[in-house]
Amino acid sequence: MKVEMRVWRQDGPDAQGKFESYPVEVVEAMSFLEALDVINEQLVEQGQEPIVFEHDCREGICGSCGAMVNGRAHGPGDRSTLCQVHMRQFKDGDVIYVEPWRAGAFPVLKDLMVDRSSFDRIIQAGGYISVRTGSAPDGNAIPIGKAVSDEAMSAAECIGCGACVAACPNASASLFTSAKISHLSLLPQGDPERSRVLEMVKVMDDEGFGSCTNHGECSSVCPKGIDLRYIGRMNRELLRQLVHPSKGQLA
């Protein structure tokens, strides 16, 4: 089958971008990124610069890939990353628009590649448990109920792709930040440093992410299905720190 990809091409952060059209012959079993590969190989053979896009694992776990496809973060498909989209999800003759994440805190670097280092700085502000290597007690010293542990794991599944920010009308990073805060504050090991929420939320704001107004777009495009309830948990953590700053060593 044949489709037409209209891909956003932008030379650099300050350059003007525009859509370029690439008609391409594909087969249903091809992944979306493989269809981009086909276009790219043809471009290179013609001596033209290929479309820049990020990818690594190509199985939905590293969080490298991502683009708006026909206006939806990561394209069609439920709970999937762009690399998990296949051409059988399109039909012959389709015109497909492909654009980078658009958010002030994720500047475009080139074509579909954006700078997501703001996520790293949120984690550096407190998204960890301080434990010196070698000083840990036996792994079974602190039993943790299965339900709590499972809930922490569900929050920890975030792959840091940034689709939540791209989908949000306010470009908020609340789902991302709350997932890490929830993961760590649910666990007894994370309890002493629960004031991390103050620092992490501050950095989130400083980086230029918008605020959450409960649209829920983030969760609906999240490849890992990170739930909105974690944003509620983050807000409770924040309130708790503001009301009882003594709870938590860092405060």
Partner: peptide, 12 residues
């Protein structure tokens, strides 16, 4: 032990 202390949510 180290990973548990860091908060790695191993299955329980």
């Amino acid at each position: 032990d180290q990973c548990v202390a860091q908060g790695v949510p191993f299955a329980r």
